[in-house]
Design a protein around this nucleic acid. Structure first.
Lengths: 341, 341
DNA sequence: ATGAAAGCGCTAACAA
DNA sequence: TTGTTAGCGCTTTCAT
């Protein structure tokens, strides 16, 4: 039984390099891996051969031999809305750039939340939020794969998280409105299945409570983060006999929709309605009235997640970390003090 | 010389499965690969063992053994500005989603344009534009790796391209302005090292030429796509003693900047200046005046690129394709007929 | 400083 | 239908 070498002739192996350089494959391997114990003369010969053959070691063979991988997966649940935010791009960009710097190969998975994750051979995973795909996270964890969760503080799992202080950010927004004299402050929430939306709602409620302002259910609107539902909420809100004087909106894109509706209904901004958004989406800058909003440190979040994952992958017995990043109120033009009547 | 098995005990190999199922590893391999010639009884035993051990075959061993890979790289040159466009996200999303559907693993590389691409073991590459990183493309091609170029029509290389009809789109925009009676039409170009910007400029010139309108250099502004330079151009343009009545801007984000400047200078839009952008960036919808623009079929572009790459990777002797997608003028509110004076 | 050879976990050709 | 075994291309002992 004779086996024919089936390796395509056009791609050189370590053996070809060794032959050309007149050394053993072990020596070639040493040169590739920058081991020291190689005579300068041989090193040069090998390097020459490598260059001549355009040799690149097979990543698969390397990984099979070492059992190590520097491949990292970024899981973005295909959740309606996760891609609405321009920030998804910021995250991808931040993560991608840092991975490049750390020589990590980034695998991007846009998965259906219900699908079973196939992350065979991956050295670590970053979950961009965990919405409906917790089983994927648990599965990875049970396989002993280092994981980091972004934008979601997962308390009951031994996993590193990088989350944003949504509650604090929301409180800052509402406190700002209260400070301007507003008392009747509405809220248009995002999809409350997301932790971010729930926490922003939480912050809204607690800020009011701390100042002894009663919640009124009639000016709390729950949406799915879509512009359509924001529009409906805005219309209801603006047409009330006793409309609120201010509104805290859970996302900038919805806040922009509110502004659009207000304009259509002939309201003057910010005179008739003070508005604060959340996200610091650049689109907020270019309307007739620049949007006051809450900024999330996204690039930092992205960077922290890669650093943390890298740490988990390299340190042997490393403890998970829960990292909290602050959100910052950015005051622009969409709010004004309530004129006392 | 005895070698000790160093495989971490917690991750099972095909051998463990075989032992537990009481068959040979070949049979296990057959079951995994859905080969037919396995007795139902054995198949069940193997499947049981797989489930019990949570076995997942090593992707590296598989690839080493078969020489095949389903890993695809998306190369985004870290070119200042490539990430400005919200469309980068659309592309990533579209490509990511289709890769997921086709069971291709997507590797995202955000590379410095000057860096040497290390795409060892990748089955195919999608280049999101080629700007300053042509050597990377040529290198990959010379290695025989199937490649697809997005957003850039590379004529002199045997490579598949999916490009947009920037010239046609620009002509449509300018023709529309001419149709409204405008004659003095300015252009704010993008970075002319990018093919898109160059072609939009090209379309601008040819549309004017076809209608026998002379170019005037004083109302052609060359920028790097940044908002800052757009602002400078807009200021110059608007403060001219004999300002143009219309402007075709190479990107929506710059067009929005022009609108902002116009507003600051007390101009009324679209009365004082008709504006057409390019990109169909959603931000254009939410200003006081919705932006007329040229839409690129980005999701389609993304999908076509993956399909084409997949074709190249699976067909044996496949010819490259050059695919051209149309751009469409989207008329909104930022232009109006020139009042005859 | 160098090389021979075992082994990483799998697939596929061949034999049974 | 099943098992035996060579080999994918590399790393890593161990011996020289």
């Amino acid at each position: 039984m004779v086996h024919i070498k089936k390796r395509p002739s056009d791609i050189p192996s370590i053996e070809d390099v060794a032959r050309l350089a007149g050394v053993s494959i072990t020596t070639v391997s040493r040169v590739i891996n920058k081991a020291t114990s190689v005579k300068e003369k041989n090193r040069v010969k090998v390097l020459d051969a490598v260059k001549q053959l355009k040799f690149q070691p097979s990543i698969f063979a390397q990984r099979l031999a070492t059992g190590k991988t520097n491949e990292v997966a970024l899981i973005m649940p295909r959740y309606e809305g996760i891609f609405y935010s321009f920030y998804a791009l910021e995250l991808i960009r931040g993560i991608g750039t840092l991975c490049e710097a750390l020589k990590l190969d980034l695998l991007l998975h846009i998965t259906d939340v219900r699908s079973i994750l196939s992350v065979r051979g991956v050295g670590g995973i970053i979950f961009a939020d965990v919405i409906g795909n917790r089983h994927q996270l648990e599965d990875a964890l049970s396989r002993g794969i280092p994981c980091v969760v972004l934008n979601n503080y997962v308390e009951d799992l031994e996993v590193s998280c990088i989350a944003i202080d949504n509650i604090g950010g929301a409180e800052a927004a509402v406190n700002y409105l209260i400070g301007l004299g507003h008392k009747r402050i509405a809220h248009i929430s995002g999809d409350l299945v997301t932790q971010a939306a729930a926490q922003r709602f939480e912050g809204y409620k607690s800020a009011l409570k701390k100042k002894n302002i009663a919640l009124s259910e009639d000016i709390i609107f729950k949406t799915d983060y879509s512009r359509g539902q924001a529009r409906m909420a805005a219309e209801k809100l603006l047409k009330m006999p006793n409309p609120p004087t201010a509104v805290f909106v859970a996302s900038d894109s919805m806040a922009l929709e509110v502004m659009a509706v207000a304009k259509e209904l002939g309201r003057l901004l910010p005179r008739d309605l003070s508005i604060v958004g959340f996200d610091d989406n650049p689109s907020g800058l270019y309307g007739p009235v620049a949007l006051t909003t809450v900024r999330q440190p996204l690039i930092r979040m992205a960077e922290e997640s890669v650093k943390e994952l890298n740490r988990l992958m390299t340190e042997k017995k490393s403890k998970v970390k829960k990292i909290f990043l602050p959100a910052e109120l950015i005051i622009r033009e969409s709010c004004q003090p309530l004129k006392s009547t």
